[in-house]
Design a protein around this nucleic acid. Structure first.
Length: 267
DNA sequence: ATGGTGGTAGAACCA
């Protein structure tokens, strides 16, 4: 089974690219982030024609996550238990909502995650990001306590660069989100709960990224960040026999600012 | 030092 994740930065703008990607790499399950559309706007037919079922949750034009699967799409769940709600605390703030979608695909519990960006170290969204990650860690730890053999994949845009080598120049990020100690600790806590980064061993750094800012020629200058991850439970991680970042997808006109991450699971 | 680009929008806001 081939599982992939991609922050697509608008599914309507890039439906053709996503369809071509699915076919080019023969992908079975694709988790998408930043779909940037309402449920009724999702171009389901494009993917239905290719044999994929679609689950999507998009609160507004901001964010939104989806799962496409041609190996079953069952027990679809919006949000994980205990996921903190931004709007419940602060009033309407659609940019901070609807960022987790779970489904069982081919025996694997797949979670498409868009971790809150955080904006700046002083912004309330930063505290929300840490709170959100702590809740995810707690709930995901519970899944493994319940069933240590569970096959779970936590995939998506984590908006965290866990290691210094995961950004092109640490000095640029001295007072920025994504690299702060609390964010890295929050990411590590999920790892410590039993979810391993299954891609890094197959795509080691430095200089290996999943995101390049549209501005300042970041991609041709090879100035990127590794912020998209596939974290796997022990039973899932044991099945991974190949993984790669499809850097080619970042090239050319009409690319997302993120590249897809692809993982192969042995039968 | 701001703006560089691209998305949703249809003005500003977000990444």
């Amino acid at each position: 089974m081939r599982l992939a994740t991609w922050n697509v930065n608008s599914i309507r703008t890039r439906a053709d690219r996503v369809a071509a990607f699915l076919q080019r790499h023969d992908v079975d399950v694709l988790a998408l982030q930043e779909t940037k559309c309402r449920d009724d706007q999702f171009p389901e037919m494009v993917f239905g024609a290719l044999g994929y079922e679609v689950a999507h949750v998009g609160h507004s034009q901001w964010n939104g996550v989806a799962i496409l699967s041609r190996v079953g799409l069952d027990d679809v769940t919006t949000g994980f238990a205990g996921m903190p709600s931004w709007s419940a605390k602060e009033g309407v703030a659609p940019s901070a909502e609807a960022r987790a979608l779970g489904a069982t695909c081919g025996g694997v519990r797949v979670w498409s995650l868009y971790v809150p960006n955080g904006r700046t170290l002083e912004d309330p969204h930063y505290a929300y990001k840490l709170e959100w990650l702590a809740a995810l860690r707690g709930t995901a730890a519970g899944w493994l306590a319940e069933d240590p053999a569970a096959q779970v994949a936590l995939v998506g845009d984590w908006n965290i660069a866990p290691q210094d080598d995961d950004v092109w120049d640490m000095s640029v990020f001295s007072r920025s989100t994504h690299v702060s100690a609390p964010e890295r600790a929050a990411f590590q806590a999920v790892v410590d709960a039993g979810y391993a980064d299954v891609v890094r061993p197959h795509a080691p750094g430095p200089g290996v990224y999943t995101y390049w800012d549209y501005t300042q020629l970041r991609f041709p200058r090879r100035e990127g960040m590794r912020i998209d991850f596939v974290l796997g439970s022990p039973a899932l991680a044991a099945r991974v026999d190949r993984a790669f970042i499809d850097r080619e997808e970042r090239k050319g006109k009409g690319a997302s600012d993120h590249a897809p991450v692809v993982v192969d699971l042995a039968e």
